[in-house]
Computed example of a mutant assay.
Amino acid sequence: MKIMIEVLGDDCGDELHDLREWLRDDADLRGSSLLSLPRPPADGEMNGGVPAALEATIMNKELVVALAGSIGGWLTARAASRRTRIRVRRGEVEVEIDTTKLRDAEKIARTIQEQLNGVD
């Protein structure tokens, strides 16, 4: 299954890069793959270059739990110093998290996994 992850308001792609590194270092996510998807080029540009989203290929629903937990940890670590908004999508199901409203890693993880695991 493919899960798309976007960091909203990340025009330079720096936050998405940080998230990718965080997820890559998570031992619980071994067996999944992460691919950065670039933004399409703007008028007059040769290529977009800036990452727009991450595409995680997850082999089973248990890895969705690990992915949700890792995203929750990343968001919680950032919440003390800055607002971060992400959108996580699997098929037609989408969940958006804003750290001004939800800051607890466990609640973030539970919200993401409940939404995404409800899709078949």
Score class of each variant (00 low, 15 high):
V119N: 00
A77K: 12
V50Y: 05
L63R: 00
L63W: 00
I58Y: 04
D104N: 14
R24F: 07
A79L: 03
L75H: 12
E6R: 15
G44Q: 02
A52I: 05
Q115F: 08
R87H: 04
L19C: 11
G9T: 05
G69D: 10
W22D: 10
N47I: 14
A109I: 02
V95S: 00
T111S: 03
L23K: 06
E55C: 07
L8T: 10
M46T: 14
K101E: 12
R20G: 13
R83E: 15
M4G: 08
A105T: 03
A66M: 04
A105C: 05
E94I: 11
E94D: 14
R78Y: 09
H17N: 13
D28W: 04
R30C: 05
T57I: 09
A77W: 06
G73V: 05
E106V: 08
R82P: 07
R103V: 09
R39T: 09
R24H: 08
M46P: 14
G73T: 06
V95T: 10
G118M: 02
G13C: 13
I108E: 03
D11L: 14
V95F: 00
W22F: 15
E92D: 13
A53D: 01
D104K: 07
E114G: 01
A105V: 02
V93G: 01
A66H: 12
S32T: 15
A56G: 04
T57H: 09
P38W: 07
A80G: 15
G9F: 12
V64A: 00
E62S: 12
S36G: 11
E6S: 12
N60A: 10
G49P: 07
V88Y: 02
E114A: 05
D28T: 13
G44E: 08
S70K: 06
R110L: 06
E114Q: 13
L19M: 15
I71H: 04
R39P: 13
A68G: 00
I58R: 05
T76D: 09
D120T: 13
I3F: 00
W74N: 08
V95I: 14
D10S: 06
T57F: 06
K107R: 15
N60H: 12
I86E: 00
E45F: 14
N60R: 07
L23T: 08
D120S: 14
G13K: 12
D11R: 10
K107Y: 09
D28G: 11
A42R: 15
C12V: 10
R85N: 04
E6N: 12
L29R: 05
G72S: 07
V7W: 03
